[in-house]
Design a protein around this nucleic acid. Structure first.
Length: 372
DNA sequence: GAAGCGTGGTT
DNA sequence: TAACCAAGCTT
């Protein structure tokens, strides 16, 4: 290990990698973004350290999710559950409700499972190594490295989409992205500095988010433009090279909004696994690839005076969906597997965005917060 | 290793 | 505006 470290240092001295890291860190000190989960640069040198719980929570929320979308959810979670012990003590249902709208709902289930393990088996303390972190549910290669570096000052190679873009431009990598990942990781490992590895990781990501952007990068403002091979090549925007994506199929179906006289709406819970796993929905038909999909009220889960309320569209990662929305007024007990959600409770249900669209189409305003 | 898994902002 | 794609993980 010591020998490897020496080799790494020697390679850096020769290649100038340490100068890239130094310039990035200086740039980060001056231009870093202020984010709710962040501490001031140089925390460890001052003898302070970030709260691993907050770093972990933010990193899970940030998986494939924009910073702007995460901010409000992060604040809500921290206010509701200030510690991992508090999150572990919370009912899973409450966590799903608080996550509703953020997407990729398996993250919320894994978040809760991870909190339970850390609280019950580890005295509320997160592992402080990449390997230890990666064993926990919902923590993969990226998140393990990010938490190890940012919360525990470990020299881990943090590789996310930003870093892939920055590095593929720095070295003008022509290999398409999926195939180039091992090469990119190796290059990042050589760049990581011995000191301030967490700030370095965040600097790379901030650079990718604000300067080395996917389109129209602001190269004139870049602290490492002198080192950038893609600028020499004349077209930084060409990197990273990506393979063309498969196109999204269209699925259709019908959704049924049953409303009681007092404004309650009939809901049910989806299975824990799969699409929108563990979330709440109104009754719907299956979502099929049929193109003839002239859905009718005949497909309703129970008879009622169903009126067509229109149609909504929604785009998921791997298919687009069109749902015909039907609306009816019914009374009485909820059918097996369903429950009535009172008018003032609907906004707090674990409703994914597609289901809020459906309900809003039938009953405008029904999913907005309303006084009790 | 490929496919499944949400949503919203940007261009 | 349709496409792109964001601090990826799991199976």
């Amino acid at each position: 290990m010591a020998l490897q470290d020496q080799t790494r240092k020697a390679e850096k001295a020769i290649s100038g990698d340490s100068s890239i890291a130094a310039r990035l860190l200086a740039w980060y000190d001056a231009h870093h973004r202020d984010l709710p989960w962040r501490v001031t640069p140089g925390a460890f040198a001052r003898g302070t350290r970030p709260d691993p719980y907050r770093i972990w929570l933010s990193e899970v929320m940030l998986q494939q999710t924009t910073v702007e979308a995460v901010k409000a959810y992060f604040r809500t979670f921290i206010e509701k559950w200030p510690t991992v012990a508090a999150l572990a003590a919370a009912p899973a249902e409450d966590v799903m409700k608080a996550w509703a709208g953020l997407g990729y709902y398996s993250r919320a289930r894994n978040l809760k499972a991870c909190a339970d393990i850390v609280a019950a088996q580890r005295g509320g303390r997160f592992p402080d190594t990449e390997a230890g972190l990666k064993e926990l549910p919902g923590i993969g290669a990226y998140t393990a490295a990010a938490v190890a570096a940012i919360a525990f000052d470990r020299p881990a190679a943090v590789v996310d989409g930003n870093v892939e873009r920055v590095v593929s431009r720095l070295y003008s990598i022509e290999t398409p992205l999926s195939e180039a990942k091992p090469e990119i990781r190796a290059l990042v490992e050589k760049l990581v500095p011995e000191t301030r590895p967490g700030d370095f990781a965040q600097a790379m990501m901030d650079l990718g988010a604000t300067i080395c952007t996917p389109r129209r990068p602001r190269c004139m403002l870049c602290p490492v433009r002198e080192d950038c091979s893609a600028i020499l090549a004349g077209d930084p925007e060409r990197f990273p090279v990506r393979l063309p994506k498969d196109d999204r199929p269209l699925r259709r179906g019908a959704a049924f909004v049953a409303e009681r006289g007092d404004g309650a709406i009939l809901l049910r819970k989806r299975p824990d696994k799969g699409l929108l796993g563990g979330m709440t929905e109104v009754p719907t038909t299956a979502w099929t690839a049929r193109a003839d999909g002239a859905t009718t009220a005949d497909a309703a889960p129970f008879p009622a005076d169903w009126r067509r309320a229109g149609r909504i569209g929604h785009v998921f990662t791997h298919f687009a969906l069109e749902l015909d929305v039907f609306h009816a007024h019914i009374e009485g007990a909820a059918p097996v597997g369903h429950f009535w959600s009172l008018a003032h409770e609907i906004s707090g249900e674990a409703l994914p965005t597609v289901m809020k669209k459906v309900i809003e189409r039938a009953i405008p305003g029904a999913t907005k917060a309303r006084p009790v």
